[in-house]
Design a protein around this nucleic acid. Sequence first.
DNA 1: ATAATAGTGTCTGTAAGACATTATCAA
DNA 2: TTGATAATGTCTTACAGACACTATTAT
Lengths: 222, 222
Amino acid sequence: MMQSIIATIDVVLLTIQDDRLCVVLSKRDKEPYANLDALPGGYIHAEEDRDSLDAAVRILQQKTSLIPPYLEQLRTFAGASRDPRGWSISVVYFALVNNDLIISSQQPGLTICPVDELRRLPFDHNEIIETAVDRIRNKSQYSSLPCYLAGETFTLPRLQKIYEACLGEGLNKVSFRRKMDELGVLEEIPGQTESGGAHRPAQVYGLKSEFKNQLKLLERGL
Amino acid sequence: MMQSIIATIDVVLLTIQDDRLCVVLSKRDKEPYANLDALPGGYIHAEEDRDSLDAAVRILQQKTSLIPPYLEQLRTFAGASRDPRGWSISVVYFALVNNDLIISSQQPGLTICPVDELRRLPFDHNEIIETAVDRIRNKSQYSSLPCYLAGETFTLPRLQKIYEACLGEGLNKVSFRRKMDELGVLEEIPGQTESGGAHRPAQVYGLKSEFKNQLKLLERGL
DNA sequence: ATAATAGTGTCTGTAAGACATTATCAA
DNA sequence: TTGATAATGTCTTACAGACACTATTAT
């Protein structure tokens, strides 16, 4: 005789705030752990979700009012002891979004917290976030992934800060620029510069349209 | 009202046969698709499996009589249309094993098939295997992963063939050996060589014991 | 002018691949 | 000896990081 298994989706939504990698938490409105901050999540709805990606998009939309520019499956966390309701499966998704979009979403109950300053979270959400941070660290080494954190337009110094926040270490400026050039996903926005103080203004770039929905990989890492 | 969701495990068990990357298929003993070859899989048993890894080990043991030296989660495939029984979640694991162990397991109903010669399989198992091949391709570039396909002892030319089968491309011998040296997971077995014909015999190596249960990563890939 | 950061040129050490040479076996 | 593969030495080229220099702004 089979006892029933709870099927849920959780999303690790990452963003950059003050040059730091942060995770977006949502205050839970139901038990268990009502009123505590946790990863945005919810049940899979077999009647309306065609697959788990569908479910992740729906849940993210409900909890954060956002459609992030990047969303992929992270991993599944499943077992008897991770949820007080019983044996549960959580298919976890991993999303990136520019901080400004979160602010402008005006969704109540959201908290943005640096990933290295998290307190104890409900369920196994700390472990899940660790896994997500490992993933972004890894992919940032050889792909255009962090560009999805940067918003529509950005300067190269800004993008380097984002890569550094993702990787958790400083990068060589010359090498970084060579690699971005090699990646070939950026396009200079002609004539547009950003003057951020008493110094030479920086050229503004955007993602080439063909890479807005497609990661580009490097042969050798950064 | 929630309709129930089927929770299963499938395992992509990969091995090397005749210098080719192969997947181990198991003849299904139940409907749907009874008597067809498919990935070894089964229901999660909430009463006896503590988590999904437990379930994968149990199912693999039942279907193949094997405990592979390497087992990790691959990805979850979930949706309404992948299984005729209804909305299903399959948490898929990815395992590596030396071919000799499969032979010696004597388990009936197993087929070993090159991954590039697969016919149409039940469910979304073709897509799942593709994902697994992508994974091994990727990890083989910068880790000791393929060593788990090599058995207890092996020569460097043999290991290079295995890496090449995983990567789907030839490798430079000198670079390969430098990288294996840099990885530092191998130990020469003193005095032991393998004479495979009318030529100089090759030195035999094994995995250092501290790496038998731990992947080692390269800073830069092969 | 000065300070501050953006952006680029150039040098150097390292690492990867290509090639060649030596080693060791069977026939 | 010959042929085959193992194993290693060495050369060349490419690339990553370091450093320095130029560019352009605000004050």
